[in-house]
Design a protein around this nucleic acid. Sequence first.
DNA 1: CTCGATTGTGCAACTAGTTGCACAAGTGGC
DNA 2: GCCACTTGTGCAACTAGTTGCACAATCGAG
Lengths: 180, 180
Amino acid sequence: MSLPHAILTALLEKPSSGLELTRRFDRSIGYFWSATHQQIYRELGRLEAEGHIRALAPAQPARGQKKSYEVLPAGRAELARWTAAAQDPKPHRDALLLRLRAAAVVGTAGLQADLGRHLELHRRQLAEYEEIERRDFPPGRDTAEDRLRHLVLRAGIDLETFWTQWLTQALAEVAAMPSE
Amino acid sequence: MSLPHAILTALLEKPSSGLELTRRFDRSIGYFWSATHQQIYRELGRLEAEGHIRALAPAQPARGQKKSYEVLPAGRAELARWTAAAQDPKPHRDALLLRLRAAAVVGTAGLQADLGRHLELHRRQLAEYEEIERRDFPPGRDTAEDRLRHLVLRAGIDLETFWTQWLTQALAEVAAMPSE
DNA sequence: CTCGATTGTGCAACTAGTTGCACAAGTGGC
DNA sequence: GCCACTTGTGCAACTAGTTGCACAATCGAG
């Protein structure tokens, strides 16, 4: 139940419209929370109904027009409450690890190509995060907020680094046992 | 849509009853796929209806009794098909990273305790995986299946290692900015 | 000026996973 | 003998996330 809180965080960092939020969720926010535009619009509606956010009146109201939202005090309070509350980690599920384990039983035929594709995807993601790091966290800036945000980005970078290494090794293993 | 395939993999490794599966999902299978007993029973029913698995007749049939399942050829074929099929990685969501990012905006008050709790949980999980590694993968054994399964376990170990390190660092950062 | 592509917003239906409960059968203590 | 506890199985309702579609406004090319 964290999508509303992800949206509150994003809106506190910068008031945005649904589409702007969608873009930010695809970019930097994506490394700890992802959401489609449909989810986001639905949730914006709920948050507004609950009085946690409100739409900023556009210059000339018209249909099909950008609506920007800002967080109300009640929304900020809810986010602070949620952030401080104890929460159990969600169990993880990783289809790729499962497939490798399955391959130990039914054979590795056909697996290699997709492992390579995943490796490439993770490499690209890693490059993107490193680009964000260069742009948003140049050496020198050192406020408390920056250090926290940088720490979160580092998690994204280190995880992608791990996956590229692991997939490289997995590919080598699978290549060494042709189709079994 | 991978729970059925997780169950097929587990049953191929060793035919089991619903409860035995539940236990195995809580233990070693848990590091790449988790499921509750309710999910497992529901899915066993579906897999049986589809002709992918079948119940082994118990010695003396009675209600409320263990039913063991084994995989049929159709089930094995379906698992092989799924393993080889290209699949896009699922977007990840991590509430803890989100909370840290939120804390950069609304303050870190109250966060420290839960970070410590998570660190402890990951330490324990790590210890458990390392125990499994010692027990199931002693040096020397080297079949193809073993190498694949060991690789999967290594992913679990390395990820837990990463999280313990990251959380240690996060705790240090948060401690250095008291309540903000 | 107009038609097709893009931008921006949104509903509806579906799927997967979670939570809460129920109930039968066996097991150990008193 | 019976009551509380554990084991094993399962249904039903709910929640979160995904997929598929729709439709208005705007913008750029011919």
